[in-house]
Design a protein around this nucleic acid. Structure first.
Lengths: 194, 194
DNA sequence: GTCTATAGGCCGATAGAC
DNA sequence: GTCTATCGGCCTATAGAC
């Protein structure tokens, strides 16, 4: 049982480190993530961060992959929802992810390893969204509707910008944008049984 | 003439420092901006950065204000263009600003002083854009057009996201989005004399 | 797996000479 | 306005004991 207990502790420590990293990313930005700061938040020694994850770059990658798994799981739920478009829009607005996503995208511009992962994940998500949207547009049968990939891009652009500006403390036109999207959703996906 | 020569040199040094800071922001991100790194790029001693700008926070603020002036000057030109909507869209896509803007917005989330400036500038720009768009929509007389502020938000969201994703090295759906916007522009602002 | 100790580096900022 | 010199702090990462 020694092996099991040790590996449990290892998993617990790893989770604590990842949780702390995520918290710092969201609240203070990627630049504030350091082995010492992470250890402080997690209540550990900073050397443990290096023991479990090696370099800081590797820690960031591990966090991104964990976040991506949660994220994809929720996307798949949207795929099977009775109102996939609404579900997709709601998921895209989720702030917890939004802040983390913003930081990773900013970080990706300057770290090749992260950049590769973020690019791949971004494209995967865009493709999944396009599929969900294609089905919804087909069902709604709207004439002159833009291509699904364009709608997917719009959803990503609007939700990211709403999230970014909210974080910035401004909300100019936000309510009008929300209303506009809601109206569109009502046309594309009329409310049925909840 | 001593006073003039010295103040010229001071202005030259200040400009060199601001130029170097801007370059680092664009190429390496805000986190890479340090007095030593700035001085290295500008070919100066790092202490000069502190002499001329005091704190690093103050240097960032000075850069932001300089960039904002250039930016606003170009916006005003859009206001008086014969095709303001096209001009506005083209300006919004300018990459040089785009990267700088992205970094400042990311930085704003974690620095109160920068946050205040970015928020104010963002709202000013949004309002100017709304005015330009209101005029164009009125001229086009499209039925069922969204509110000008919503269109302004869309333009900001789309151009920022296009810029961000280009920097990320992905271009999924970008061409389709460009085409979509061009088609919209053709409806709202039919090409006349160039 | 976690601890102590430590090497080696970049950082912001200031003091004082010229 | 620019120089040299320097303080104190936080950083990544590793070595070796337990």
């Amino acid at each position: 049982m020694t092996r099991k207990r040790k590996s449990d502790e290892s998993a617990g420590t790893k989770k604590a480190i990842l949780d702390a990293t995520q918290q710092i990313m969201c609240n203070e930005g990627y630049a504030a993530v350091s082995s010492r700061r992470v250890a402080e938040v997690a209540g550990l020694k900073s050397q443990l961060v290096h023991y479990h994850f090696g370099t800081m770059d590797n820690l960031m990658l591990a966090l991104f992959r964990r976040a991506e798994e949660d994220f994809l799981a929720r996307q798949v739920r949207s795929l099977t929802s009775t109102s996939p478009l609404r579900s997709l829009w709601k998921e895209s607005l989720q702030q917890a992810d939004a802040h983390l996503t913003i930081e990773f995208i900013a970080l990706a511009r300057h770290s090749e390893a992260i950049g590769n992962e973020v690019r791949r994940a971004n494209e995967t998500t865009r493709n999944i969204h396009s599929m969900i949207i294609a089905g919804a547009l087909e069902r709604a049968d709207i004439k002159g509707a833009p291509a699904p990939e364009v709608v997917a891009f719009f959803i990503a652009a609007l939700s990211r910008t709403l999230g970014t500006e909210e974080a910035l403390g401004t909300s100019l036109a936000h309510e009008a944008v929300h209303t506009f999207v809601e109206d569109l959703l009502n046309k594309l996906e009329p409310a049925s049984n909840p």
